[in-house]
Design a binder for these strands. Sequence first.
DNA 1: CCCATAAGTAAGCGATTATTCACTTATTTT
DNA 2: AAAATAAGTGAATAATCGCTTACTTATGGG
Lengths: 196, 196
Amino acid sequence: MRTRNIEKEQLVKQTAIEMVVNDGFEGFSVNKLAKACGISVATLYIYYKDKDDLITTIALEEGKRMTTISLRGFDPTQSFTDGLRIQWKNRAEFMLENPLSMCFFEQLRTSTYQTKVMEQILGDFKEAMHAFVNNAVERGELDSMPLEVFWAIAYAPLYSLLRFHNDGRSPGGKPFTMNDDIMWQTFDRVIKALKK
Amino acid sequence: MRTRNIEKEQLVKQTAIEMVVNDGFEGFSVNKLAKACGISVATLYIYYKDKDDLITTIALEEGKRMTTISLRGFDPTQSFTDGLRIQWKNRAEFMLENPLSMCFFEQLRTSTYQTKVMEQILGDFKEAMHAFVNNAVERGELDSMPLEVFWAIAYAPLYSLLRFHNDGRSPGGKPFTMNDDIMWQTFDRVIKALKK
DNA sequence: CCCATAAGTAAGCGATTATTCACTTATTTT
DNA sequence: AAAATAAGTGAATAATCGCTTACTTATGGG
């Protein structure tokens, strides 16, 4: 039998992400995707069951890549400051090296695919984070607080900075590029807000 | 001459927002909107120049409503803690009372309408915020810091909580309803992170 | 009252949507 | 070399897209 062209498959995935990032899901179509890849639209239906399957499969693959990197070197039993610092480092690293992926996830999060995809992607993640916070509270490093409050203070500021960086402008409308100094300065303040 | 049906116009606006919130811009179409409102699609083209004009006009109206409420009782010269507290109160109040509007803005922010609409909406806002931060720094209440850092710490946690509330679930996947206690507990930590 | 005029509509335009089908091409196995 | 089979395609489907046109309806000023 004829062998499948792996490069074409990768091209489809990359191009699909670019299309969604540039024009949103409203501007995405399988016909346009096929044309942009220089293949027949019918070929897409060999790779994927339908449009929905195409999006969710690509999202899940990309999500797995992200969670793997984000949990690298992370251990729920390590000290609170160390654990959170690694989380910030990993997440920032992934987002800065894969700005397209970051934009793609933002599109997913605010789309109808949200419940279908994001919960699966963030599954392992949430579990590890829950254990991590509980350990820190038990050791007395952290006040007990609702998980939503922890999440809002510990991670929302990081993602806010990353979004400014990705949009290329600050809240004042001026150009903005994230750097280590700004990031760790923010991290220190977040620690101050969380620790006893 | 025949008089315009104001109720129909309001119905169009409300229904358009609901459609975008429920199905995203990908699921929004002028034909569906007209059908949902029980009017002819041609009538929409009396109210609005085209689809783009429909979205941007509605977005700008809704945005004006939000910024007006958010700046109510706010004065860039007042003390840092008081000013930020009023901001949190106003923004939370609007978002909790207008969950549909909040979702609509989230769709706008992550859509191709972003640059066209969000900058106009947030214009006055950013100006007031800039003056407010500068004053607080001059009075010595606040460390000087990049505006992005301020924004990330001062507001990102609030919006994070509001999103959890709106989605109806916490980061752990459990049901979540925002209340005053959780909100002001978070506020206190944010103040701790920002003040000298 | 009546008519000028804006409000409102039914029907349909060409373009694009997701998906399918009958078909050809390339490669592995025998 | 030939048979078997998956990979890949061009052209078409019905449905829906944004938008227009030719037309009818309702109402305020004369």
